[in-house]
């Protein structure tokens, strides 16, 4: 009998290990296990953070992992605004649930010049608490990785955002795996923002591809939309890496006042909008020289000065 119990125990432990490798929650294992003791259903809520959009949460199996790495990539530097925006929206969601409010943004020098440095006033309006917002600008990628590991391991931060440009050889699968394991051990999320990068094997649990979408219009107090206004940002996201076999594309809108995501509505043409902008005007370039001048007579001997 005792032997049987030990065997059961071992079997259960093995199943649990396999479940962990597959990323399932131990509760599911407990349900599948007919005789095993039911584990307390604590795992699911504490390890995932729901984005608040049902379809998306289903695809993410409950939400974004709080003990792992999530990768957000953009295909070109010009989309850095959308990438940063989506990462920061995720950070705002995490921050709302975490007990620590500090955030660390680790930039690389190039992205900092090219896309600008995070602007705390803008971040606060975006729905983040910026009292303990830290920005790091390490000289080398190795330093950045060390910093990300140290930050994940310390208990002080709600989330760590690591910004990398492109696909540097110093950040490959092994480094990504190392970071991911560190995040898992420390139970802290790492958000990896990769600008202008290609798809690459990585150890992140999910990978999103972010592009900007046309912003939602501002909502007027009577519920109608103000045509031509620029309201909440909309991201055109593709969930590239997940357990789903096919990539999932959707338009997600971030409402910074309520700090929540919603699926963007297909904007219906409102009465005021149409092609006109808030400041409608001609699209033609301003004429500089008046009407076209008459053709010169005779043979061209020398060009006029261009400047």
């Amino acid at each position: 009998m005792a032997k049987h119990a030990t065997a059961q125990e071992r079997l259960f432990a093995l199943r649990e290990t396999i479940a962990k490798l597959e990323g399932k929650t131990p509760t599911l294992v407990a349900e599948e296990q007919p005789q095993g003791e039911r584990m307390a259903a604590t795992g699911k809520d504490s390890r995932r953070i729901a984005l608040g959009v049902d379809e998306l949460d289903a695809a993410l199996e409950g939400g974004l992992p709080l003990d792992g790495m999530t990768e957000i990539r953009t295909c070109a530097m010009r989309n850095s605004g959308a990438g940063s925006g989506f990462v920061l929206a995720l950070a705002a969601l995490i921050q709302r649930q975490a007990k620590a409010s500090a955030l660390l943004w680790i930039s690389d020098r190039f992205s900092n010049v090219e896309a600008g440095r995070p602007y705390p006033i803008g971040l606060a309006q975006y729905g983040l608490q910026v009292r303990h917002f830290l920005h790091a600008l390490p000289r080398k990628l190795e330093d950045a990785l060390w910093l990300a590991e140290a930050a994940a391991a310390s208990d002080a931060l709600a989330a760590t955002i690591l910004e990398i440009r492109g696909n540097p050889s110093a950040f490959g699968l092994s480094e990504s795996r190392r970071l991911s394991l560190r995040a898992k051990a420390a139970r802290r999320p790492i958000l990896l923002l990769r600008h202008a990068s290609e798809e690459e094997a990585s150890s992140a649990v999910f990978r999103f591809h972010a592009e900007p979408g046309p912003a939602a219009e501002r909502v007027l107090p009577n519920g109608t939309m103000l045509g031509g206004s620029i309201g909440s940002p909309v991201f055109r996201l593709t969930l590239e890496k997940s357990r789903n076999p096919a990539p999932l594309s959707f338009l997600l809108e971030w409402n910074s006042r309520d700090r929540q995501f919603c699926l963007a509505r297909q904007t219906e043409p409102s009465r005021l909008s149409g092609d006109a902008t808030a400041h409608s005007g001609t699209r033609l370039p301003a004429s500089a020289d008046g009407p076209d001048c008459a053709a010169a007579l005779g043979r061209l001997m020398a060009f006029d000065r261009a400047s």
Binding site: A100, H132, L134, A136, D155, L157
Partner: peptide
Amino acid sequence: APLADLIDRVSARLGEDVLQAFQL
């Protein structure tokens, strides 16, 4: 104070200019 510890560690290792905080 884990945050202060982290700041100290990072500043000691990478130099104090690397990690920046903001003030309005």
